[in-house]
C-alpha cells in the first residue's frame, strides 16, 4: 500500500480518537446508566458531581451524565443527518449546474446567490417556526439551508473535470450522460466531497447547538447539547458544572471533526503520487471557523 493511505496524518488520527471516545460515551455508556434522561427527582436537585451522579444533577434532579449522553446522541444524529442532506442536495444541484452549463448554470447559480444573501439563521428559524419542533424539523432546517456551499464545490469540480481529456475520451467511446456523471465524474469528486462533509458536520453541530440555545431546538424534556448548555447557562453562577459538562462535550466534538476535516484537506494538498495531482489542484473547501460563523449567520 502506498504511503498515502497509511493514515499517517496525526490530526486525522487524533480527531478520530476524540470522536470515537465521545461516541462510546454517548452510544454505549449512556444506556447503561441507572437513570433515564427525563426521570425527575426533586429531592436530589442540583447535586454536585458524586459517585452516584457522575456529572451531578440539574435543577429538576435529573442525572446530568445521562442527559449529556442523550443530548450528544441527539446532536450527533441531527448533525450527521443534516450534513448528509446538504451533501445530497448540494452535489446533485452543483453537478447538474456544472454539467449542463450555459444558461441553466447561470440561472441555478444566481438562485444560489440569492439564497446566500438571505441570512442563513433567519431561514432556519422560519422553517423551525413553521414546522412542529423536534429532531426531524431541526435536520430539515439545517440541511435545507446549508447545501449551497456543497453545490458550489460540486459545480467547480464538474467544470474542471468537464474540460479534461479523459472526459472527451469517454464521450468519444459513446458513454451516455448518466454514465459520464456517475461513472467518470463522481468517483473523482468523492474525495473533495467527503472532506467537505467532515467540515459540514461540525458546522451542523454548531448550528444545532445555537438553534437549541435560543430555544428553537428539541422540545422538553428531550435534550441536546445546545439546550443543556442553555439550561446550564441560567444557573451558571451557582452551579458551574451544569454548564461545564455539555460545553466540554460540544467542544470535544467540534475539535474532533475539525481535526479530521483539516487533516483530510492537508492530505489532499500533498503530492505523494502522480495521480494525486488531480486532487491537489482542487479548490480548498470552506474551513470551519466558529467565530466567523456566528457573525456571518447573524
Amino acid at each position: 500500500m502506498p504511503e498515502y493511505y497509511k493514515l499517517k496524518n496525526r490530526k486525522i488520527l487524533l480527531g478520530s480518537l476524540i470522536i470515537l471516545l465521545v461516541a462510546i460515551f454517548a452510544i454505549l455508556l449512556t444506556p447503561l446508566s441507572a437513570y433515564s434522561y427525563h426521570e425527575q427527582n426533586l429531592e436530589q436537585a442540583n447535586m454536585r458531581p458524586s459517585a452516584e451522579h457522575w456529572f451531578g444533577t440539574d435543577r429538576l434532579g435529573r442525572d446530568l451524565f445521562t442527559r449529556v449522553g442523550y443530548g450528544t446522541q441527539t446532536s450527533l444524529l441531527v448533525a450527521i443527518a443534516a450534513a448528509l442532506i446538504e451533501l445530497t442536495i448540494g452535489t446533485i444541484y452543483g453537478t447538474l449546474s456544472g454539467y449542463l452549463g450555459g444558461l441553466v448554470d447561470e440561472i441555478l447559480m444566481r438562485a444560489i446567490d440569492i439564497l446566500f444573501s438571505i441570512p442563513y439563521l433567519l431561514l432556519a428559524i422560519l422553517l423551525l417556526v413553521l414546522l412542529p419542533p423536534g429532531k426531524g424539523t431541526l435536520i430539515l432546517a439545517i440541511g435545507f439551508t446549508g447545501w449551497p456551499h456543497m453545490a458550489r464545490i460540486a459545480r467547480i469540480l464538474v467544470i474542471r473535470l468537464k474540460t479534461q481529456d479523459f472526459f472527451l475520451a469517454a464521450r468519444c467511446y459513446g458513454a451516455g450522460h448518466l454514465r459520464l456523471i456517475c461513472g467518470h465524474m463522481l468517483p473523482q469528486m468523492l474525495k473533495a466531497i467527503f472532506s467537505q462533509l467532515t467540515l459540514s458536520i461540525p458546522a451542523a453541530i454548531y448550528s444545532e447547538a445555537f438553534l437549541s440555545f435560543i430555544g428553537l431546538g428539541v422540545p422538553m424534556p428531550q435534550a441536546s447539547l445546545g439546550s443543556l448548555i442553555q439550561e446550564g447557562f441560567t444557573v451558571f453562577p451557582l452551579y458551574p458544572y451544569q454548564l461545564f459538562y455539555p460545553a466540554f462535550v460540544l467542544s470535544l466534538l467540534l475539535l474532533g471533526f475539525t481535526f479530521i476535516g483539516d487533516g483530510l484537506q492537508s492530505l489532499y494538498s500533498r503530492k505523494l503520487l502522480k495521480g494525486e495531482e488531480y486532487f491537489a489542484a482542487q479548490p480548498p473547501a470552506r474551513s470551519f471557523q466558529p467565530t466567523g460563523f456566528i457573525s456571518y449567520k447573524n
Binding site: 475520451a169 468517483p187 473523482q188
Partner: peptide, 8 residues
C-alpha cells in the same frame, strides 16, 4: 495519461 480516467 490524461485521456484515461485516473480513478478507474
Amino acid at each position: 495519461q490524461s485521456a484515461l480516467n485516473p480513478v478507474l
